[in-house]
Design a protein around this nucleic acid. Structure first.
Length: 227
DNA sequence: GCGACAG
DNA sequence: ATCTTGTCGC
């Protein structure tokens, strides 16, 4: 995969915020995305070596709806931007984009480990990289970042709104009965209902959806064995 | 000023 | 996220 847009990630936090506001204008919501046409889904994640200050970005391609791993790519790169809530894409984006360049198969959609538009300025890592790659994307986080989260039933598949300024910016989703929920928001080129629906369809036997789970496992493998 | 704060 | 041991629960 190749990004259609490119920009420097070598920015100050203030410049990064300004860029987010510009990139946000490229977001497309609720396009004619069809879950029935999905053949391949991607999961992207990053692991970090504190000792070496290195990031390991990985992309895993899974078949859909069978969820079998079909392709993997990884890239090691120096962590040049600090972790700042709201600016995660500037830390993890570079190494993930390099990993996407190595991927040969074209996924129909990408799941990112982090938020989409459920973000202080409406442009989390899933939205940001979705725009640069011109690809449908969904943000799936394990913790909330902004907005008010409502209670949800204990049953698998239960959802509740994440509201900010009176608007629904994402959904909390229970992926397994009585297990902590995950936080789903639109990244790019898809609507919230379909994003939640597709996320639920990528749940295997665990709390975390298979695309992200496999990416997480793989990123830890490359960090601990191939470094 | 204070508290919150994806990975 | 990483570092890091044992421990509680299905």
């Amino acid at each position: 995969m190749k990004p259609i847009y490119a920009h420097s990630f070598n920015l100050t936090p203030k410049e990064a915020v300004e860029l987010q506001l510009k990139l946000k204008k490229n977001l497309i919501f609720d396009s004619d995305f069809n879950i029935e046409d999905v053949k391949l889904v991607a999961g992207a994640d990053v692991s970090y070596s504190k000792k070496e200050n290195m990031l390991y970005g990985v992309v895993v391609i899974l078949t859909f709806p069978d969820l079998e791993v079909a392709e993997k790519a990884w890239v090691k790169g120096e962590a040049e931007f600090p972790y700042i809530p709201g600016l995660l894409a500037f830390r993890e984006g570079p190494v993930l984009l390099e990993a996407f360049k190595k991927i040969e198969r074209e996924p129909d959609i990408i799941f990112f480990d982090g938020h989409g538009i459920s973000h202080p300025r409406g442009l989390g890592i899933a939205s940001h990289l979705g725009v640069l790659l011109n690809k449908s994307s969904i943000g799936v986080a394990k913790k909330n970042l902004v907005g008010e989260v409502f209670e949800l039933a204990k049953t698998k598949g239960a959802t509740a709104s994440i509201l900010k300024d009176g608007k629904e910016i994402g959904k909390v989703l229970r992926t397994r009965e009585k297990v902590k929920p995950i936080y789903v928001s639109v990244g790019h080129k898809i609507g919230l209902e379909k994003a939640v629906d597709l996320t639920l369809k990528t749940i295997g036997k665990y709390r975390i959806l298979e695309p992200i789970r496999q990416a997480h496992i793989f990123s830890n493998e490359v960090r601990t064995s191939k470094s």
